[in-house]
Amino acid sequence: MRPGSTVMFTGDSITDSQRLESEDGLGFGYPLRIAGEWGFRCPEQPVTWLNSGVAGNKVMDLEARWQSDVLDVRPDVVSILVGINDVGWHAYDPDGYLIPAEEYAAGYDRLLAPLAEAGTELILIEPFLLPVRGVLEVGAALIGPEDRKKWRADLDPKIQVVRELARKYDAQLLAADGLFAELSATTEPEYWAMDGVHPTPAGHAALAAAWLRLVTRG
């Protein structure tokens, strides 16, 4: 990243992290940690940090607000984390339905195409799911480990979509699902995300550290 760059984080609740309740609009998760660490390490390279994540968003929700929230801002770098709400666990909601991987891929591609055409640097973060053991309440349903195994079967093809799009658009890929799988091999997964989806402070710190390694390597 060059001095004076504008970096836009966008996606769902993991990125949102209560940004509207925060003084600087970055929320309380990994975007704030990235901005803080960058400012500490590189005071001579000021960067403008923005967050347009919205809790509950799917790819199609991002599409609906992409022009005003992202394209019109003309950021130099866009970092995207979206996909867990496109996974089958939303079928437990009254209005939920299963989103095919092909539909997810087509929508995600439509997000990236105008950014690539404008020369925007892209960072794609894989959606992820940790194998926690507890029970999660979704609407009126109680969702346990066996249910999350079904989510995993739906999530894996969508992670592959993100990897393929990263190659197509020469984007930086943050392999977050693999990151958390590796961390969970030595520390219980609940330490990183109590419900398997939303990171704990330690989980956000892990995401932020991986993001910074990605953009500063070499």
Results as ranks from 00 to 15, higher is better:
A105P: 09
V87S: 05
R41Y: 13
W49F: 13
L115S: 02
L71S: 00
S52P: 14
D72E: 05
V54T: 09
E63P: 10
D93I: 11
P46L: 09
S79F: 05
Y97L: 11
V73I: 15
P114L: 09
G96A: 11
E117P: 01
I99G: 03
G96Q: 11
W66M: 09
D95E: 14
Q67C: 08
A55R: 15
Y92W: 11
L129P: 00
L98M: 13
M60A: 13
V54P: 07
Y92V: 13
Y108E: 04
D93S: 13
V59A: 03
L112N: 03
G134T: 06
P94H: 07
W66P: 00
P46V: 11
G119T: 01
E103G: 15
I84E: 04
L136S: 05
E121V: 07
T120C: 05
D86I: 07
P43T: 06
W66S: 02
Y97T: 08
I123E: 10
V77I: 08
E117G: 03
R74T: 11
E126Y: 00
D72F: 06
D95P: 11
L50M: 15
P131I: 02
L50S: 09
I84K: 03
L112Y: 04
T48F: 10
G96S: 15
R65T: 09
Q67Y: 06
E126R: 01
S79A: 14
S52R: 11
L71M: 07
H90G: 03
G119A: 03
R41A: 09
A106I: 12
E63L: 13
P43K: 11
D76K: 04
D95W: 15
L71K: 00
L62T: 04
Y92H: 07
V82N: 04
A91W: 11
F128C: 01
F128Q: 01
S68T: 04
L62V: 13
R65W: 09
T120N: 00
F128T: 00
E44Q: 14
V87R: 01
P94K: 06
W89D: 02
W49P: 04
E121Q: 07
F128A: 00
G96V: 05
D72L: 12
L124T: 02
G88N: 10
A118W: 02
E121I: 03
D95Y: 13
H90Y: 12
Y108I: 08
P114K: 02
V70I: 12
Y92T: 10
N85W: 08
W49A: 12
V59E: 01
W66C: 08
E63A: 14
P100Y: 10
V73C: 07
L71W: 02
A105I: 10
V54M: 13
L50A: 14
R133T: 13
G56K: 06
L122Y: 00
N85E: 12
G107I: 14
E121G: 03
P114V: 10
I123A: 05
V82C: 14
